[in-house]
């Protein structure tokens, strides 16, 4: 399998794109997820409808189709041209945000109403309550489901191949086409994904154990 090492430069670049796109999608998804969860829990009727249509669209259709829409359809409708990386990042953020909204909503609702009233009785304003009572708990509670989102988004970045982004799977396709040795190439690339995801899970687990607070877990709160 040494022939693969000749392509290590390619592979490293592809891996870099895969990881970066995952992190970009997750980061954008956190912002969108928190905002839409807050809107869905505390917002007005119209806002709830808008948020839930957004979530329904991105959770109900395939990422591949969403990527094609953002790469081909949206520029055609708006006349704004953007490159594949922009279209890909936007799609990943919106897609992940739709899933993360569900996790954050569950976590926000798990911060029981009695604590909100207790905060009010101390004279705390709503923003103060959000910042000091709701979010610190919700962010901790959300880590385990959020870990799943990290894994599933990380693996779905392979869909970026449909708009031509040179991520890890796309690199594998090229190497396999050049070397005519698909079996080794895909096994090797699969191994890279596997090691990356396994290590990431270990790190996230470590983080969770670091910030964990007795009695504040999904199973006990929700």
């Amino acid at each position: 399998m040494y022939f693969i090492l000749e392509y290590s430069q390619f592979i490293i670049e592809g891996f870099y794109v895969t990881v970066t796109m995952t992190l970009v999608g997750l980061a954008g998804g956190v912002v969108l997820g928190v905002l839409s969860a807050l809107g869905d829990v505390y917002g007005g009727k119209l806002l709830k409808i808008i948020i839930n249509s957004y979530v329904e669209f991105f959770r109900g259709s395939p990422l591949i189709v969403q990527l094609l829409i953002f790469y081909y359809s949206i520029p055609a409708i708006t006349g704004v041209k953007w490159d594949a990386l922009t279209a890909g990042s936007l799609t990943l953020m919106l897609n992940s945000g739709a899933y993360q909204k569900g996790y954050f909503k569950g976590a926000i609702e798990a911060v029981f109403k009695d604590q909100l009233i207790a905060a009010k009785s101390l004279g705390m304003t709503f923003p103060q309550t959000l910042r000091h009572v709701v979010l610190p708990q919700a962010l901790r509670i959300v880590i385990p489901p959020w870990t799943n989102e990290y894994v599933s988004l990380g693996l779905s970045t392979s869909a970026l191949i449909v708009i031509g982004i040179r991520e890890l799977t796309n690199v594998a396709v090229s190497i396999s086409a050049q070397t005519f040795r698909p079996l080794e190439v895909y096994l090797f690339i699969g191994l890279i994904y596997f090691v990356w995801i396994t290590l990431s899970l270990k790190v996230l687990d470590w983080v969770y154990n670091k910030v964990k607070i007795p009695g504040l877990a999904v199973s006990e709160v929700m």
Partner: peptide
């Protein structure tokens, strides 16, 4: 005014992410 009226609830309603000390300090 709420800050000047203390309230103790039937269920303690402590902030679950804070220690006893931090619960008292928050307000």
């Amino acid at each position: 005014i709420r800050a000047k009226i203390g309230f103790v609830f039937q269920d303690p309603s402590l902030f679950r992410h804070l220690t006893a000390l931090e619960n008292v300090k928050l307000g």
